[in-house]
């Protein structure tokens, strides 16, 4: 085991990878605990992880932490699925037909560089402070990024595959669904996974400015009373949800694309 992980560009078993990941986390947590207990830094700035875990437990048992997590996840997924459902066909069409790509590319590039927080006031004017605003902001942050990634994946489909399909009797629509979509599948799912991560960034912003539920709201309320362990607990939950989702999506990727 020592040898394989020390070899230049070596490979390691899934078990070894997992063990190393866990070990690193434990070391960091222990260091943090020690540093915090020695109180080099005031505890309201840096509470030890044990306090954070304790806060996590109280929040979960008495302050509906699970419910808040669920609300946040739901917002992320609804916005993400809307963005993906729009970005996949539009992205594919953008790099398949110039009549779609040429007019949309500059516009999307422009909107893509607008920082989402700058659009919060506008969004509140348009949609009020309800769910629509949050979904809109998340959608805004992901759709325009994703559509360009999809267009790029589509462009990268080897032209040979497209031409072979034509000489096997396929029509353009069939080439798109039976060849292009299949060929870009692995990259597409990877990009979806990464974009879903960005969604969480915008979620926190949206929930801080306009919400009375969700993890962003929990973190922001705890901050008001300088309950640092609670603030950290909220952040940790987001991290954990991210980690688990990411691992599940990676597993799904492996299952979907066994041929890789």
């Amino acid at each position: 085991m020592m040898r394989e992980v020390l070899t230049f560009r070596g490979k390691a078993t899934a078990g070894t990878e997992f063990a190393l990941g866990v070990a690193a986390a434990v070391v960091v947590l222990l260091l943090w605990e020690v540093v915090a207990r020695l109180e080099f830094v005031a505890p309201q700035f840096l509470p030890p992880p044990s306090k954070v875990i304790a806060a996590l437990w109280t929040m979960a048992t008495t302050q509906h932490l699970l419910w808040h997590s669920l609300i946040s996840s739901l917002r992320v997924w609804v916005a993400f699925l809307i963005a993906a459902a729009m970005a996949i066909p539009i992205g594919i069409l953008m790099s398949s037909y110039r009549i779609v790509g040429a007019p949309l590319e500059p516009m999307i590039d422009f909107i893509r560089y607008l920082p989402v927080p700058a659009l919060v006031p506008l969004s509140i004017i348009w949609f009020g402070v309800g769910e629509e605003t949050k979904i809109f902001l998340l959608w805004l942050g992901t759709f325009f990024q994703l559509v360009l990634l999809v267009a790029d994946d589509m462009r990268r489909v080897p032209h040979e595959y497209v031409e072979i399909a034509f000489t096997l009797g396929a029509r353009p629509r069939q080439v798109m669904t039976d060849v292009a979509l299949r060929s870009m599948g692995p990259n597409l799912v990877d990009n979806l996974r990464i974009t879903l991560g960005w969604c969480w960034t915008y979620l926190v912003i949206a929930e801080i400015v306009a919400a009375d539920s969700g993890l962003g709201f929990v973190i922001w309320s705890a901050r008001r009373y300088v309950k640092t362990p609670e603030v950290m607990a909220g952040v940790v939950v987001i991290g954990l949800i991210g980690l688990i989702t990411d691992q599940l999506l990676r597993a799904l990727h492996r299952r979907m694309f066994r041929y890789l």
Partner: peptide, 11 residues
């Protein structure tokens, strides 16, 4: 057509 590369669909 049979090309030299990308000749079969990997999926």
């Amino acid at each position: 057509m049979v090309f030299q590369s990308y000749s079969s669909f990997p999926w």
